[in-house]
Design a protein around this nucleic acid. Structure first.
Length: 267
DNA sequence: TAGTCTGTTAGACA
DNA sequence: CTGTCTAACAGACT
């Protein structure tokens, strides 16, 4: 479930599972996973010691001891999990790390990608170059400078060059928290409302990250009991009660994507 | 069968 | 030039 929070959860896991070590075996199961680089280049890169695993927006960046790096993007259904064998459904690549087991890039829809960069090349990668600030670094001035008054706030927030990492779920959840109408234009919001958004974004992501980390621990401790709890108040809850006013949550299309909201309290 | 989906990008159009 | 919409990518699910 890759929005910023999910990618951050993968990053934190990989710091424990992989950082400081090299894969002893690499299996590329889907040759389409490495984009614009040869399959051998991907396999070779992963054989080096990982020195740092960082996140930028929804991108996961693995830096290796030889100064090369691999950038993963999970798109809609990608993730990296730890398992006993690389032979799992939808696995596109797997690499074995001693004392960890297999790390597997799993991706049902196969829209995800991995890009290999040799020393220095990553600085030229346009999607990272044009990425906006992380949610915690956004300022009122930045938003006012980059969001024209007539643009929908939702569209602006999903634009990764304005804020890094915001996804469609986050927009519904943030708008519910802040009581913003789903189609509100940037120019319709006061500075106070914009400021509230700026403060709510990092709070929201941190809460989802904490929930997801706790959820994984719960999952492991309860030996595979599927997690039923959702950390979301409105996303995916069409027809349910608004947790604030108990009116019915609706689903509409805004900017080409679903928005879930409560008509009564979001105006 | 048709519509939907957590992301991104290119091209058409107003 | 701006902004919005659609299609495409690929597959599973309802």
């Amino acid at each position: 479930m890759p929005e910023l929070a999910e990618v951050e959860v993968v990053r934190r896991n990989l710091v424990d599972w992989w950082e400081g070590r090299a894969a002893s075996e690499v299996r590329l199961l889907d040759e389409d996973l490495p984009k614009e680089s040869a399959p051998e280049q991907f396999v070779d890169a992963l054989r080096h010691v990982v020195t740092e695993i960082r996140r930028r927006g929804k991108y996961l960046i693995c830096a290796f001891a030889d100064a090369s790096s691999v950038v993963f993007h999970f798109r809609m259904t990608g993730k990296i999990i730890r398992c006993a064998s690389p032979d799992v459904d939808y696995a596109r690549a797997g690499w074995r790390v001693d004392e960890t087991g297999w790390l597997v890039f799993k991706d049902q829809r196969r829209l995800g990608e991995a890009r290999v960069f040799e020393a220095g090349e990553i600085d030229e990668y346009a999607p990272l170059q044009r990425m906006g600030p992380e949610p915690e670094d956004v300022t009122l001035q930045h938003l006012r400078d980059h969001c024209s008054d007539r643009r929908m706030l939702k569209t602006a927030l999903l634009d990764q060059s304005i804020v890094a990492g915001v996804g469609n779920i986050a927009v519904s959840e943030l708008f519910w928290r802040l009581q913003f109408a789903p189609g509100v234009k940037c120019g319709e919001l006061t500075d106070e409302q914009m400021q509230a958004l700026i403060e709510e974004m990092p709070r929201y992501f941190n809460e989802i990250i904490d929930f997801s980390m706790a959820d994984e621990i719960r999952y492991i401790e309860e030996a595979g009991a599927a997690s039923e709890k959702s950390p979301f108040q409105v996303y995916g809850r069409e027809g349910e009660e608004c947790p604030r006013c108990f009116d019915t949550i609706e689903k509409i299309r805004v900017g080409g994507r679903s928005s879930y909201f409560c008509r009564r309290c979001q105006r």
